[in-house]
């Protein structure tokens, strides 16, 4: 009986999580277009619903009803597999992500995470590394030169930036003496990690931008020179899968920044519910992502590699050494 209740609880949590992650890209696309518009002195979507609020719904319906086109020379199996491979890992990662400690519903304490893995951080990095397969297969299977170029760039970029990203969080693990994300947040209840780890946060955030393939590191889908990069040949619902995956990764990097460096659900000064504090911080980081996108140009490919290997990697190493000497 107890086992059944526990299983049911997990099933409900997973269903809620999937629903949230699938629906969240809708407001995020609206927000991105609004921010883009206002930064360029335009208004963004205005005609569908109040201030264009229903625009993402209209776009979604459009994508669902569009022809799902597969190029004649494409590898059909890989072509169909790639969007699912790109979509699944960002969803799986959220199994290990905590959104808060506990809430009490009907006199029962319910934890705000699916599972508290003791190697959660390792799990996150391992699974998010798989996301690159979707991008590579998508570009390769389409049999288009733009898509192949885009996926080749992505391959190199993801591998280069995962290393500094992994090193950057080692400082956090050293401070918390744990890889569990819940323990890492608990260790920050007095002072957030950003105070001890400014270099770590800088490296993590820049590498996160590159992992999420957002401007200034969006070489995989550089509109100007590659059409749309790896998803040039995708249309309809498969294209929507790639878009959802992109927004979920943006959310993931924001959530990880908050958990690892900005105290998770610990608030400062203003006493708000922990979940609200968490949501506010994540929203701020998502805004920063969009703010970056409409401010910066794109890096050249050799610059991208130089930043990854010659700047971020030494910085993250230095961060580990400094943290090791100063705090242990």
């Amino acid at each position: 009986m107890e086992l059944l209740v526990a299983l049911g609880l997990i099933a409900i949590k997973v269903a809620l999580l999937i629903a949230m992650l699938l629906l969240l890209p809708l407001p995020l696309t609206w927000l991105e277009r609004k921010i883009a518009g206002h930064m360029q002195q335009r208004m963004g979507p205005m005609r569908v619903g109040w201030h264009g609020l229903l625009q993402p719904v209209a776009d979604g319906i459009k994508l669902l009803t569009k022809e799902d086109h597969i190029p004649a020379e494409a590898d059909r199996f890989l072509f169909k597999l790639a969007p699912i491979l790109a979509l699944a890992p960002p969803f799986v990662v959220f199994v290990a992500i905590p959104f808060g400690e506990t809430v009490s519903v009907l006199n029962a304490e319910i934890t705000l995470y699916v599972s508290n893995l003791n190697v959660a951080l390792l799990f996150v990095f391992a699974v998010i590394g798989l996301e690159v397969y979707g991008v590579i297969f998508g570009g390769w299977a389409a049999n288009s030169k733009y898509a192949v170029l885009g996926s080749l760039r992505t391959c190199a970029q993801m591998i280069s930036y995962e290393i500094p990203m992994g090193f950057a969080v080692i400082g956090v693990v050293m401070l918390a003496q744990s890889m569990s994300l819940v323990d890492i947040v608990r260790a920050q209840s007095d002072l957030w990690n950003i105070v001890y780890q400014p270099i770590g946060f800088f490296v993590f955030f820049v590498a996160g931008l590159a992992e999420a393939q957002r401007i200034p590191f969006d070489l995989a889908e550089a509109e100007g020179d590659l059409g749309a990069g790896f998803h040039t040949e995708y249309s309809g619902i498969r294209f929507a899968f790639f878009m959802v995956s992109e927004y979920v990764i943006v959310l993931l990097v924001s959530v990880l920044s908050v958990i690892l460096f900005f105290g998770g659900w610990n608030g400062i000064l203003i006493p708000l519910p922990p979940l609200l504090w968490f949501a506010l911080k994540v929203a701020f980081f998502i805004y920063v992502f969009m703010w970056f996108r409409f401010t910066l140009p794109r890096y050249r490919y050799d610059q991208l590699m130089a930043i990854g290997w010659k700047v971020l990697l030494p910085l993250s190493m230095a961060n580990i050494i400094i943290t090791g000497i100063a705090f242990t």
Binding site: I35, G37, H38, M39, Q40, Q41, R42, M43, M46, R47, W291, F294, T295, L296
Partner: peptide, 24 residues
């Protein structure tokens, strides 16, 4: 230089849009 770029775009975000909402 990055900071000045971000303050510029942030300032533009709260400036009035020049869009003429023509048919509506």
């Amino acid at each position: 230089d990055l900071a000045s770029a971000f303050t510029l775009t942030f300032g533009y975000m709260f400036s009035k849009p020049v869009t003429m909402q023509y048919p509506d």
